[in-house]
């Protein structure tokens, strides 16, 4: 479903050209569970952003569902993100002034889904993620675990094919971290491809495929 061919990504830092990704070749199928590990600065987040269409490769080809998405314009890329990709961030990235249900509703609003459908979908997600009694709470009234559950509910609201999680447990204690990973893993059973960037080998080792990155290259795959 996802295929990267000879993908590189260079950044200009002052006069220097720094390679964040060098010649990445990678294929990921629907329902895959992939963890990306490596030291900071190894390019794992850059790779994730690239797959999430938040960034463009300097060279190489990225195909999503067989379609070359590297050359799409902003409008089309946004559409792909909306329909196929879900993000879960380390710092949750909830909109502070909106309630839990409104945060979950946000991608549906942006996609122009009619209000009745949105309501039903949000209701379902609140139930699924055990947030039914937190509907009208704002993020600052929620615990870390609850916030990340809202974020996951939001990421899955559009039924994405790929879920990208960047250090989803980084701001959580171990117990809630495990709980959040559990929720994410459950999604892979529904044919969602889960790509997880993490520092934590305990979490990374749970994935069926584990990529190790160093200096912008994938050094080992299992």
């Amino acid at each position: 479903m996802i295929s990267l061919e000879h993908v590189t990504r260079n950044f200009a830092v002052g006069d220097l050209e720094v390679s964040a990704l060098r010649d990445i070749n990678l294929t990921i199928a629907a329902g895959d569970y992939v963890s990306i590990m490596g030291p900071s600065g190894s390019g794992k987040s850059t790779l994730l952003n690239l797959i999430g269409l938040l960034d463009r490769p300097s060279s190489g080809i990225y195909r999503l569902d067989g379609r070359d998405v590297t050359s799409l314009d902003d409008e089309e890329q946004a559409k792909v993100r909306s329909e196929k990709i879900g993000f879960v961030f380390q710092s949750f990235h909830l909109v502070p002034r909106l309630t839990a249900s409104m945060n979950i509703e946000l991608p549906l609003i942006l996609a122009g889904i009619p209000p009745d459908d949105r309501k039903a979908r949000v209701e379902e997600l609140l139930q699924d993620y055990g947030l039914a009694d937190r509907t009208d709470h704002r993020p600052d009234q929620l615990s870390g675990g609850q916030r990340q559950r809202v974020a996951i509910a939001r990421a899955t609201s559009m039924h994405p094919a790929v879920l990208l999680a960047d250090e989803p447990t980084g701001n959580l204690d171990q117990a809630t971290g495990r709980e959040v990973i559990g929720l994410l893993e459950k999604l892979t059973e529904q044919h969602v491809a889960l790509i997880l960037v993490t520092h934590d080998p305990m979490i990374g080792s749970r994935a069926k495929r584990q990529l190790h990155m160093v200096d912008g290259q994938i050094v080992s795959q299992t």
Binding site: D74, R81, I85, L106, P107, L110, R154, M158
Partner: peptide, 8 residues
Amino acid sequence: LKALGAPA
């Protein structure tokens, strides 16, 4: 918003 699929 951009990550959630909002174009410029």
